[in-house]
């Protein structure tokens, strides 16, 4: 299915805007969305496989919880807690990978964890749903705050302006503001054809799912808000978040007591990603 992406402007209170163009949409498309999202991306899977046994982490914006069962080769040696704003997606996340998962209904801008509680945090395809630069930076800051100041690791993925050649999405030609990223609507069309093709093993079907599936065939289009990130924009967000927390940026600098180090960064499958490690001088 080819999806036409259109430019948009955030023209109201950002939290209200997100409520209308992100949270409500996901709650409505949850079961169909969930059925199309079951394959973990390689770099994220590798990150989760590199964690020592006993690690506990946060998946901030877990969606249907597809990363909660990982690492697949040694299940139960690591626990990831899933947080999401969509309660309907959490119903799927709760039983992701046919086992009971830990999920929390909350906002990625919330701070409902004791400081430094986690060994790691991932935020995959989530921060691009926040409607202002400040809110996106706050979300990054929350990730830094919830992991250990001595060894916490954070992996962030956001949607890129630079799209994969294989992507069928048509992106509007950018304005002169492209260095600042671009705000867009990405349509999700609900028709009988987009009903889950393979019976979904990852989530329990319940009343809400059935209600959606039995609706008449009239196709419905839901526009989801995204901020498409420009090259370098995610790095800048990470830098600003670190500075706001009084953290140096770079490998254990001599004149700083604490900081973050960018372990890897890059572009994969139409997304920018960055992995960060927190450090503190002993």
């Amino acid at each position: 299915m080819s999806t036409k992406v259109t430019a948009t402007v955030v023209d109201s209170d950002p939290s209200l805007y997100e409520e209308n163009h992100v949270h409500q949409v996901y709650d409505q498309i949850a079961s169909h969305f969930s059925a199309t999202r079951y394959k973990p991306w390689p770099i994220i899977a590798a990150f989760l496989s590199s964690l020592p046994p006993g690690s506990v982490g946060l998946d901030s914006g877990t969606g249907n919880g597809k990363y909660l069962p990982l690492p697949i080769e040694r299940p139960g040696s690591v626990w990831t807690i899933g947080l999401d704003r969509s309660r309907n997606l959490l119903r799927a996340a709760r039983t992701a990978g046919q086992s009971t998962r830990e999920v929390v209904w909350g906002d990625v801008l919330g701070k409902s964890w004791r400081d430094g509680a986690f060994d790691y945090a991932i935020s995959i395809a989530t921060i691009h749903h926040l409607a202002t630069p400040k809110r996106r930076m706050d979300a990054v800051q929350r990730l830094f705050e919830c992991v250990s100041p001595t060894h916490g690791r954070v992996l962030i993925y956001v949607w890129a302006i630079e799209q994969d050649a294989q992507s069928k999405r048509q992106i509007p030609t950018s304005t002169d503001q492209s260095a600042l990223g671009q705000d867009v609507f990405v349509p999700w069309v609900l028709t009988s054809q987009t009903a889950p093709r393979k019976p979904n093993r990852q989530h329990v079907r319940d009343e809400a799912d059935l209600a959606v599936d039995t609706q008449p065939v009239e196709p419905q289009t839901f526009n989801r808000y995204y901020h498409m990130f420009a090259e370098g924009e995610l790095d800048e967000l990470v830098r600003c978040a670190a500075v706001n927390l009084g953290l140096a940026v770079g490998a254990s600098e001599t004149d700083a007591d604490a900081g973050i180090e960018i372990v890897q960064r890059g572009w994969e499958r139409s997304n920018h990603y960055v992995e960060v490690r927190r450090w503190r001088r002993a």
Binding site: G54, G76, W79, T100, A117, D119
Partner: peptide
Amino acid sequence: REAEFNADFLRGFMPR
């Protein structure tokens, strides 16, 4: 509900 026992996880998580 019964859950799979994983001693490595428990030992690693205890200090946290």
